[in-house]
Amino acid sequence: MSSPVSALKLTGLAKSFGASIAVDCLDLDIRAGEFYALLGPNGAGKTTTLRMVAGLLSADAGGIEIFGINARRAPIEAKRITAWLPDEPMLYDKLNPLEYLEFVAGLWSIDASEAQSRARELCEMLDLWKHRHERCEGFSRGMKQKVALAGALIHNPRLLMLDEPLTGLDAAIARQVKDILVERVRAGAAIILTTHILEVAERLADRIGIIQRGRLIAEGTLAQLRGVSGSSQSTLEDVFLRLTQATELAA
């Protein structure tokens, strides 16, 4: 049996801002077809890690490999199969959803007719179709988040990085988004998600990584994490708090 393909491989990744160490020799291996939740307290280095993978920050040291592509050496090729959805939707207020999706499709060099049908499919799936000609400036936060998610999905990324993707979404849409993400994973994409809503990670993630002070302090399935924390019946919230508090005390 062949070993699963590595979707994202971080080796000794490091980043400092002046004297403050944001990411400290981080090693991570996320496989294709895996839903990975990266958890950590505020300022643990989650977003910095994702920004380095997305090519928005240059790493001080270490390697980033996305489906075998060295992202530090060939960033354009790596970005072609990647999507990053930050917690604050990156939109243009004066564009409508269709114009935004056309723009995104253009940047990722997707064939026009394919992009058009994909845009329609995504708009319908995310309940945006009836708002497709309205400018984003009038949208609620949840609506903006949906447009940004459609933009992240339009080029069928193989690695999807989501920073707090469910913020501002109503229950029905949040459920829809979760279904879409699960479907993506089943189709072979890898998803790395950061969230403070631990129930989401508990329900969706195949594996969970807990990061603190820029280092990975625990990683595994929920059952494995329960084992590490020594409480077999605990919720992820209990496990998370126990592990992070223990690390904090040790530091």
Partner: peptide, 9 residues
């Protein structure tokens, strides 16, 4: 209709 290309976009 949608148009393709980085420059156009």
């Amino acid at each position: 209709r949608f148009r393709a290309g980085v420059g156009v976009a």
